[in-house]
Structure formats: structure tokens, C-alpha cells
Design a protein around this nucleic acid. Structure first.
Lengths: 215, 215, 215, 215
DNA sequence: CATGAATGAGCGTTCATTCAT
DNA sequence: AATGAATGAACGCTCATTCAT
């Protein structure tokens, strides 16, 4: 009763918050960590102050985005768990996580490994970790995982793909897949024999791209 | 000739240029892309103006470092070529290039793929490319290379390791090797059966590290 | 009458105004002029907008506090008038006014001398002035007032103590009394001979305090 | 020799530094501690960056000004020491220090009591303290100092005058003297009998003045 | 009428780049 | 040629004030 009574006042605030989060997600995904909050505010169509009203500082805004990413990964892991075999579950989770990371210049990588700053993120992180561990364990039980590889190695694998994706996103958006396959096969080979690497080698980048690129 | 008349002046200039490049390499390797040019100038023992005289801007300085890196890689490829088998040649080159990248916070990755801006760098790049291609071809002739993998894929592989190394350098300097082995084995498996991955999974990073981290 | 119709609404308004004034007084007294109006609103349990409805701007709010201070001073002067001698009346009023000023980081001094902006304050000011003048005149009639000193000098004397009190409040809350005695004795010496100054000299302030401090 | 060789390069830098210090002194004196460094830069006719080149931050700039003030006070104390009697020495030092404080809205008060942040300021402070102590002691030996008053009380006395001066500077620049005399007489009465207070009581201030005023 | 979300100029500070010396 | 002083746009962030709800 009383809960519904307080909500209505925030109608536009809620809309603005969504605007900000959307703009931030887009901008961070496109341009990495060095977008300014003025940029975010402008893209969201609000004043800077409004951004600061919702998020105490830049890190908080990023942390806010982290939780959303965790949620997506949790869903991904849950869907992967429904795969018929451990092998296909692991392979599909890895490729899915790479896909997510590749679509986001600066955030996903942080998300995958960020020490939780909020209780919400901490909880999601734990949940995710458990699910991923289960996926890897199941595949290992089938004897199809590279010896020594554990659920804790997953973020590193995703992170590596991120560095490729960040560099090639603008010119060749899907180029990272060639290396994604290389890595997934290295962790958990497909049934049958290895196929040739898909796609083509990454061409050398322009200097501009290199310096602007995060890593 | 007027050329002889200007030489003496160049002596200083050449020395200064070397000083700047050395300082820049060291600083960028240690602290990443966000060192200021004042830092570089100070470390080189020259004024900022001198840095700008040699390199039109910060990007140009970074590009300038490329050539130096190419030289090291060329040497590495030449030594690798002396290995008894194509397999060991490729594996040792890959690990060596990773090692080089891992020792340099922000630069090597750019170096490896930067479109050459100077004639000198262009030449070195061509040389390097030829040597690496030869190393990969030789291993492929032995049938020990992942199908589809070419010399042009090498920079991408090194780049991926860079992202791991940059994140773990401070706390666990050698942590990248676990993933280096994973990748090298994926590209060119060792003789005999695969050993378990060395080392331990990368622990989650602190939030600070994540946000400050380049990618 | 429409007046009776609007009264009920005023009831809230009056209560809110009082809430705001109380909160503002407390906050300004504790933390000086740099409290934000959000702080005031929060402490008062109202929205910022409500503060602005009652007081056109921050200055007006401060001026609003004046009236309340005047009331206290009027009471003080009335109690002083009941003292047996002019000397003790003046001395006790001065010390009391100093005490009041010392208990309030940033406001009282302004209060004591602010040109009245409201009719209410103007009236109180007149009343206070008359009472203080009477206290001083009575003491002068006894021949115990520094020649030339008038009731109009009282605010200046109080103001001087404020500057000491503001600087030493946090570390040595009563330290101003040493100088209060010096001043009161200068204006109206005690019966008998001068006692030594009480307390100890103010120690030098830390730099931080100095820069943060108002004057 | 070599010292003179390095100086010449800084010819304009020295000029700019002086420009900045002058502007800062003037602005701080006029408007108190809340002038921005942009204001200072503009008044000095230089860019903000130049101010930051000379002074790491706002506090450092203020501290820089402190040293200059100490020097003036040291000179003042030295001249006072040449007075024929302890009484006239003390009285002239007190009035001189008040004069200095009265001419400077926000700085002198800090100067008089700031915990030294630089070695230079610390040294000057010590020197000043010794000189002032000597002046007070000499007067005390003559039996003309209020019992209990010490050299360490001097900054408090000056500070009190500052609060008056800051409030009346714009309308009645010399108005503080009336209270300066009151205080000096309280600390160290003149030869013969007390004269009437000079000047007239301070008129009540406008509200604007009050709020803008530091304390 | 009360609310608190929104605003944006302004703060202290940094740093790539220019240019007088 | 070399220097380093100067520049000023831009950063992350604050807060007095306005206005839609």
C-alpha cells in the first residue's frame, strides 16, 4: 500500500535514471572508460548534476552498470546449463561470454572480475561463480577440459578476447571470433577433429586506433 | 657539402632522441599510457620542448617506440629460426614475443601492430613479418600448427596475453604464463601430450585496478 | 472573510518555517556559513523547495535568523537591568552577549549588526538598542565606563570575541573568555583592582584551521 | 658564478611570479579567502596553469603570502624595539600589527597564527615570536602590562581587530582604530590617564556585508 | 502548497601543446 | 637547437537555485 504511494512521485526521475544508464552503457561500450560524465549527461539529455544525483561518482556509475552485466552473465550460465552435454554447455557459455565482452568496449572486462563494491554485485558475483564452476566441472567430468583449467580461469579467457575485440570492433566487428574459437577449442575441444580457424587474421591497426585503444 | 656542416649539430640531437626514446620506453612500460610528456622529458633529462621537437605529438612518440620494439622482435625471430625443429621455433618465438609484451605495460601491443609511420619502422615491420611467416610456415610444414593459423595471427595472440599481463603485473608478475601456455598449445601443441596448465587461475581484481586498468 | 479561509494552510507554513529556522540555527552555529541548503532542508525534515518558498535565498534565511537572536539578546538585557549596580549590569550583559556569540560559529555576529530586513527584526532591534543603551548609560552615570564608549559600540565588542571563539571553539571551547575579560575590563573595569587574565594564551592554529577558518 | 648563469633564463618567469603574488595579495586582501585561482590568474594577466606552475595548490599560494607577511611583522617588531620605553615599544607594535591586519581582509590573521608549512615560514615565525616576546617582556618589566598578558596573546588581539576591520573596511576604512585603541589600552595603558575613545561607534552593517564578511 | 529532481556555472586541478627566451 | 614557462580546454565534482510534478 504505502510502497505504491511513494513511487509515483519519481516518474520522471526513473525515466531519467534509465536515460543515464542507457547513455552510459552505450558510451562506455563504444569509447571505453574515458568518457566524461559530461558526455554521459549530454548523451542522456540531462544536466551533469542529474548524473551526480543518481551516482555519487564515476566509479559508482560503472559499478551500477556492473550489476546489470552480471545479470546477463547469470542468465547466460543458466541457459548453458540446459545444454545436453557438459562440452556443449561449456563451449556455449564461453562463446556467449566472449560475445558479451566483445560488444562492450570497456565494461564487461571489469564486470567479469571486479571486486564487488555493492552488496548486490557481490551476491550476483557469487551466484555467477557457482554457476560457471558447475559448467566447467560438468565438462571436466566428461574429460573434455584442458587439464588444470577451472571456473576461475574463465574471466581471463574472456578478458583476452576483449583486447582483440576492442581493437577491431570499428573496422571488423566480428573479427574476434577467429580467436574466440582458438581459445574455446584450447579450453574444451569440440567433438570430432578441430576445424580450421574461421575468418581471417586481424590486419595491422592504424596507429591512431592503437593509441586510443585501451590496452 | 652542407650536409657535413650540419652533422655536428645532429650529434646532440641524435643523443637526445635516444635519451627520450629510452626514457619513454621505460616509463610507458612501467606506468602505461598515462605518463605525461613532462615525466618523459624529465626522465630523459631534457626539456619538454625538446621532446616536441623530435616528435610532433604524444602519439608520434609512441609510434617512435615501435621501431625499437621491432628490432627486438626481429632478433627474437632470428634466434627462433635457429631452433632445431619448426615446432620449437614457433613455440619459442611465441613465448618470447609474449614475454616482451608482458614486460611492457602499454606499449608493445600497439607496437606490434601499429601501421608504420616512419620509413624505418615500415622496413623493420616488413623484415619481421617475413621472419615470422617463415617460422610459422616451417612449423606448418611439420604439420604441428592449428589449421588456418598464419603469421598474421601472431600479433593478435601476443595482444591477448598483453591484456592479461597488464592486469596482473603488479600483484602476480608471471601470472600471464598460464594463459600463454594455453595459447601456444592451441596454436602449436607440444610434442607428446598436453601438460596441465601451469600456475594458478588469476584471482579477481580489485575494483580500483579494474577501473584504472586500460581495457 | 477570506482571511479565516487561508489560516488553516498557514498553520503548516508557520510550523515549517519554525522547523527551518531551528535547523538552520543549529547547523550554522555548528558548522558556519558553508552548510548547504540541502543540509538545512534535510535537518528540518522538509524539501529544499520549501526553504526557498520561505526565504528568497540563502542570505534571506540568515537574516531570518536575526530575529531569533535579537529575542535572546533582549531577554539578556532585561535580566542585566535587574542587576544591583550599573557596573554589574553592563559587565553581565557584555559577558552574556559574548557567550551567545561564542556559541554560534557564524551567525551571531551578523545578527547583532545586520540591517533589519523584516519589520519584526527592525522592531526587536530598536527594543534591544534601547535596553543596551540604558545599561551603558546607567553604568556611565556611575563613572565606570571607558570614556567615549556607547551602547552602539557593544556589537563591535561582541564581534571581536566572535573571531576568537570561531577559531578556538573546536579545540578549546572556552578559550575566548580570556579575551572576553580583557575587553569587558577595558570597557568597564571591575570593582577593586584588575585580576590577572584568566586562562592561557591561544596556541597558534594549524594551517588547516587557518585556511578553512572564516576570517 | 654558475648561480648567475642559471638565473637569466627566468627573467619573465620572475616577473610573472611577482604579478601572481601581487594579484593574489590584492585579491585576498580585498575579498578574503574565497577568491578563485582563476580570479588570481586573470587579475595577474596570466593563465591558470601559470599559477599552478608556481604554487602547487591554493593553500601553497596562501602560504607563500604568509612568509611575506611575517617579514613585514618582523620589521615592525624590530622598529618597535628601538622605541625609548617598553611601553611605547609595545603600544607601537600592537598598533602596527593591527594596521597590517586591517589592510588585509583574509590573510594577515592566518599569517599571524598559521602553523608554518614551509621551513622559511617556520623560521620567520620563530624569529617573530622571539622579538614580540621581548617587546612584551620589556614592557612588563616596566609594570605597564595587563597582568597575565604574554607575547602569545598578541595574535589573538590582532585577530580581534581583523574582524572589525573586515566588516567596516569598505565604508569606513579606519573605523577599527577606535577598538584598536580600546584593546591597546587594555593591554598596556598609556602614560597619564586614558583618553576618550577616538572616532565613532561602528554603525550597523547591511545584511549583504554581513553575509559576505568572513566571520 | 510542498516536494525533490534537475540544472549548469563554477570550483580546484591537470596536462598536451605552443612559443618566447 | 634546446629550454621550460605559459597556455587554456577539459576533467571530476559541488551546490545555489529553479520548476515540473
Amino acid at each position: 500500500m504505502s510502497t505504491t504511494a511513494v513511487r509515483p512521485l519519481r516518474a520522471d526521475a526513473v525515466r531519467n535514471r534509465a536515460l543515464i544508464v542507457d547513455a552510459a552503457r552505450r558510451l562506455f561500450a563504444e569509447r571505453g572508460l574515458d568518457v566524461t560524465l559530461h558526455d554521459v549527461a549530454e548523451a542522456a539529455g540531462v544536466g551533469v548534476g542529474t548524473v551526480y544525483r543518481r551516482f555519487p561518482d564515476k566509479d559508482a556509475l560503472l559499478s551500477g552498470l556492473v550489476a546489470a552485466k552480471y545479470e546477463t552473465l547469470v542468465e547466460l550460465a543458466e541457459r548453458a546449463a540446459e545444454e545436453p552435454t557438459g562440452r556443449s554447455a561449456l563451449r556455449s557459455y564461453l562463446l556467449g561470454a566472449m560475445e558479451l565482452r566483445a560488444s562492450d568496449r570497456a565494461l564487461s572486462s571489469a564486470v567479469l572480475q571486479a571486486a564487488p563494491q555493492t552488496a548486490e554485485a557481490a551476491e550476483l558475483r557469487e551466484t555467477l561463480h557457482g554457476l560457471v564452476e558447475a559448467v566447467v566441472d560438468r565438462a571436466r567430468a566428461e574429460g573434455v577440459v584442458r587439464e588444470g583449467f577451472t571456473g576461475e580461469d574463465v574471466p581471463a579467457v574472456t578478458s583476452m578476447i576483449g583486447s582483440i575485440a576492442d581493437r577491431s570492433r570499428d573496422e571488423l566487428p566480428g573479427a574476434w571470433r577467429r580467436y574466440g574459437v582458438l581459445l574455446v577449442d584450447a579450453v574444451c575441444p569440440p567433438e570430432g577433429s578441430l576445424a580450421p580457424l574461421p575468418g581471417a587474421p586481424l590486419p595491422p591497426f592504424t596507429a591512431t586506433t592503437c593509441l586510443a585503444a585501451p590496452s
